[in-house]
Amino acid sequence: MNMAKWRSYLPLATLILLMIVGSLLSDKFLTYANLMNLLQYSAESALIAVGMTLVILTGGIDLSVGSVVALTAVVSANTQHLGVWGILAVVILIGALVGALNGVVLTKFRVEPFMATLATMAIFRAVALWYTNGGPIIGTVTPAFSNIANGSLLGIPLPAVYVVVVFILGYFVLNRTPFGRHVLAVGGGEETSRLFGIKVERVKVIVYIISGVLAALAGLLITSRIGMGEPRSGFQFELVAIAVVIVGGTSLTGGRGTIGGSFIGLLIFAVVMNIMNLLNISSFVQPIVRGLIIILAALAISRMVKSKSAAAEAS
């Protein structure tokens, strides 16, 4: 038990260690500018990771988020005439629709989540590419729209603000609403939850809608940041988000994990990438590191969960 308790601090300890390593390797690391930079460029990952945390807590997975990003990235570039709020409305609607599609497919037809969202991943990406015929949408972005990702509030870059806001909201939903408890319950035991009168299917669909909407917002954010609608954006975002969630200590089997953990996971990820950038490590190496982090984190977590279920298995 003590061991397990100790292990739950592992992500935080890793983060602190990485911060120390980072500050030793580069004197630019622990500067306000760099840290803000680090936070600001994590905004898309943060949005997706919060949704992914909720999805994984129900015992599911959403592989389609990266493609949803691409979809809304191009749509928001092409709907600039609607104004910022109009675009926002369209993007949220798209996110909700694709999320609902995922949710309905895997609850109504009981398809395994990873399979259902793998298929929709292919579909959404194809739609995004089809929509622009493969190329980016350039030169449409208005200054007001551009300001969403490039503006600042009291000297803090707006994306950094979004990171904090989305995690606070996620924490709030998970820990301060009955719905949050039901998310954990569904992941902890579907049949039991049903027995307890929880509408399991509804909880799942809502969770995928949340994930879809947050991914959709991430797509909007990217277009605002880079000033064009790129149908190839969001590639492998689902992996980053999964890695962030796993690194943060959430179990892939559902029912165990925290939003705070995912926040730490996000920072760990961002710090590693940031250190690699500061050390001028080739961007071609970064995907390899990303994959390694996923597998190492999955291994670490499976060890943790195993120690807990070992007693149950023996009986």
């Binding site: 992996l239 892939l252 080739s282 071609f284 995907p287 590191v289 994959g291 291994l299 195993k306």
Partner: peptide, 27 residues
């Protein structure tokens, strides 16, 4: 080996190795 001895879900392992292999190829 990762799936068997690490007791990990196949889809997450092979997704992870996919990224690593793709990354190496790209590198």
């Amino acid at each position: 080996m990762l799936i068997t001895f690490g007791k990990l879900q196949p889809f997450i392992v092979t997704l992870g190795t996919k990224v690593i292999i793709d990354g190496t190829t790209l590198f």
